[in-house]
Amino acid sequence: MSGAESTEGVRLQKVLANAGVASRRVCEEYIVDGRVRVNGRVVTELGTRIDPTSDLVDVDGTAIQLDATKRYIMLNKPAGFVSSMKDEQGRPDLRRFTREWPERLYNVGRLDAETSGLLVLTNDGDLAHVLAHPSFGVTKVYIAKVSGRVTPQTIATLTRGIELDDGPIAADKARLLDASGTGGRGTSLVELTLHSGRNRIVRRMMAAVGHPVIDLVRRQFGPLHLGALPAGQARELTTVERGALLTAARRAAPTPPGDS
């Protein structure tokens, strides 16, 4: 923050208005009311100047992206596409869904080719690194259509934990949404909430309890919900969604050395 030098940086209320928070007058009210923090500290002086390229700002605890060049996209990835911007094997990739944005975008984490649902695409490398890192443990919600009629006992097993080849795993939450048919001829819809980033983890978990996955959709990634976005469609995150995602990433990011 460059408040000590009144001629350096950009006035905080101007930065907030340029970021789309509100009009400059309303942003001034936010500052005076103590609703704005810069680098974790409440700022109430209207003369405060900051460096938009390095200072971190939040309003009411929600992170604000000050860099207008950063892009955040939600994609409902259809089945049959690999989670890559360029597949070396020539398989269908994500490029066809991002042609309207000129920036070079990257996918945050992956969905296997047979799985559809929510993927985040961005050119914000720092955010992508934090959200995709296994230690962050972002929560993901999946809806799985599986073979057979899933019982309450199986749901309990999924949350209690099972042993896989690469170690134990337990769902954060699991619930049976629907079951039809009889015995092994039936099918079931199961909702699983996980924070694990292990490869094909939902498919392996359901196979381990005797209910192979027929179809799998990721409905939620951290604070983001797929909603009614059609398969194969992409859109920019709303201001609220972007703020929620940035807030989650900043909370998870390690504190730089020397910072308190």
Rank of each mutant, 00 (worst) to 15 (best):
V38F: 06
P92H: 06
S84I: 00
L105V: 11
Q89I: 00
G90F: 05
P92M: 02
A68S: 14
V57C: 02
L66N: 01
G3A: 15
I50V: 15
D126S: 07
E45Y: 04
E100G: 09
V43G: 05
E29P: 03
V108S: 05
E5P: 00
V38D: 06
L66M: 15
K86Y: 11
N76Q: 12
T98D: 02
Y30K: 09
V32Y: 03
L46R: 11
S83V: 08
A128Q: 10
N18F: 00
A63N: 06
S23L: 02
Q13A: 15
A17K: 06
P78S: 10
G109N: 11
R49S: 13
T122L: 07
C27T: 09
D60L: 07
L121C: 10
G61D: 13
I73N: 09
N76E: 07
A63K: 03
R41A: 14
Y106D: 05
E114P: 05
N18Q: 13
A128R: 00
V32G: 04
L105R: 02
R71W: 00
R99P: 04
D124Q: 06
L94Q: 09
R24A: 06
L127E: 04
F81K: 06
W101T: 05
K14G: 11
E114A: 15
E45I: 01
L118K: 10
R91N: 09
N107C: 15
I31T: 00
L131H: 08
D126A: 15
L131C: 10
N76A: 08
I64V: 15
R35Q: 14
P92F: 08
D124A: 11
G3H: 13
S6A: 14
E114D: 15
A128G: 03
C27K: 07
E88N: 10
E5M: 09
I50H: 03
A79Y: 03
L56S: 01
V130N: 01
T48E: 10
R49P: 00
E45D: 14
V15S: 11
R41G: 04
T62Q: 03
D33M: 13
G80R: 07
L121F: 12
G125P: 08
G61W: 12
R99F: 05
T115I: 10
R24L: 03
N39M: 05
E88Q: 14
L75I: 12
D33P: 01
R110K: 04
L121N: 08
S83I: 02
G117M: 12
L127R: 02
R24T: 08
Q13C: 14
E100A: 14
R37F: 01
R41D: 11
S23W: 02
D93A: 14
I31S: 03
R24H: 06
E103L: 11
F81P: 00
G47P: 00
S54I: 04
A79N: 07
S6P: 11
K86E: 15
S6K: 15
D60M: 05
P92Q: 07
V120R: 05
D51R: 02
D58A: 01
Y30F: 15
T44V: 14
G61C: 12
P78Y: 09
A113T: 10
V57Y: 10
N123W: 05
S54M: 01
V21Q: 12
S6C: 02
G20D: 11
D126I: 12
G109K: 13
G80C: 03
D55K: 08
G90A: 12
S23Y: 09
G34K: 07
V130M: 02
L121H: 07
